Computed example of a mutant assay.
Amino acid sequence: MKKLLTVLSCITLIVLVLVSATGCATTAEAPVAESNSVAEVQPAVEQQVESVADTAIEAAIKALDPKRGEGKTIGVVAFFQANDWNRNALQAITDNLEVYGYTVNIIDGNGDAAKMNAAVNTHIANKVAGIIMAGGDGTALKSGCAKIVEAGIPYTVIDMFQEGAITNVMADNWGGGTQLGLYVVNETKGKGKVLILDTPSWVTLLARADAADVVFNPHRSDDPTKGIVVERFDIDAGNAVTDAQTKVAAALAADPDNNIKAIVTTWNLPAVGAYAALKAAGRTDDVVIASGDTGKDVLQAMREPEAGKWVFMGQNSYVLGTRAAQGLDLALNGQADLVPFAQFGPTYFVSNLGGPDDAVIDGSEIKLQSPEQHWMEVFGTEFGTIN
């Protein structure tokens, strides 16, 4: 009996030791488990941070009278309706206003700033409730926008900054341009001639060109075999495809040593023209294209068998149109204070060599994090831990 008690005591002691060891192991592993949970929660947290403003605006809009737009006309001044970016933005404006009873009157400027300013005068004369400037040369449209302010009409703008606008909606042109510049540097190894096709009077496009150009600074040289040589071209907004094709073709003809290694365009139509020139010259394989703006024309062209490496900074103009319409809607209903002065839509980085199985890895990575998340990821310890 005594031996049996001794055996049972030993077994009990072993069990207690094992339980204690298991508890210690669990305690020791807790930080690892917590670290994993932070990583798993990260995407959800980022999405939550990004959508805070959108959620507040959506909630405010839903709380308004669903028939608030009846009897009111919104005047829209369109840059032109000949490309996908503009059509998408205009569709969003219509979708987000007509549903509440507003009448949407769109006047197409056909790429002419003078016609767009004249359209502003027409809308003012028609005593519209609000105006949306949907793209265009922001510099040339300042006089028209000043008249809107003088008339006391609330207005919002897309792809520009204007004095007195309720909100200025655009893509992150500065970050997007930097990404394009980084991609070109990586692909060219910091050597060769780079052509930049821009429409500089359009401030947001100029921002993309300048941001890309700054990335080239550490690599600049007068010799394209030793560094980057940049040549910039102004592209006519009203004849962008043909103008870009003509200028790129001339540059390629003057480049017998094939020093041109990349072409940066600040929007999609010049990219289409540049690509046509490269195809005609048989240079698609050795010249990288880095362009701005989403367009079906670019997406289809970059998937052609002849296309070489091609990336573009994409944006969703439907989102931009939505935010411009929502901002005006709120302002007309006494809630302008909820609308941000400047709003950025999502920016994409699209490559014809990329996809879910071959993601684009060039360029910088941006993460939205809290101080606690950043501390954990960078230092690997709990926030506030001092080693």
Rank of each mutant, 00 (worst) to 15 (best):
Q179V: 07
A342H: 11
D198A: 09
D362Y: 15
N110Y: 10
V17F: 14
D84V: 05
P305M: 03
G181F: 04
K62V: 09
A237Q: 13
A325Q: 03
L299Q: 09
D198Y: 05
A89G: 08
G292N: 03
Y275D: 09
D159R: 01
W85Q: 03
I74T: 03
S317C: 05
W375R: 13
K147G: 00
N387M: 13
G227W: 11
A56V: 08
G380V: 12
N117M: 02
D257T: 14
T294W: 04
V49Q: 10
M1R: 06
D159H: 01
E382R: 14
A324E: 03
D293P: 02
M1F: 09
V41D: 14
A240M: 13
V287Q: 02
G130K: 00
L269N: 13
L332V: 07
P31T: 07
Y318M: 05
I57R: 06
G355Q: 05
A240H: 08
T22V: 09
G175W: 02
A89D: 05
D236R: 15
K261S: 13
T381K: 11
T122I: 06
A240P: 10
A125V: 02
A33L: 14
T199P: 06
L338W: 03
G192Y: 05
Q91A: 14
K189C: 08
I386S: 14
K3L: 11
A60Q: 06
E34W: 06
A59N: 15
G177V: 02
M1Y: 06
F233W: 12
I366M: 12
W85Y: 09
V76Y: 07
N86K: 02
T73K: 13
D243C: 08
P66G: 07
I148S: 00
I93C: 04
D198K: 07
D255G: 11
T266V: 14
A249I: 10
K67E: 10
T12Q: 06
V214D: 10
D213Q: 09
A331S: 15
D213T: 11
M160H: 00
T6S: 13
S51G: 01
A250F: 13
K147Y: 01
I74K: 03
L13M: 14
T381H: 09
W310T: 01
N126I: 00
Q47M: 07
P224F: 08
E231D: 14
G295I: 00
G181R: 04
Q42A: 08
Q300E: 10
A30F: 05
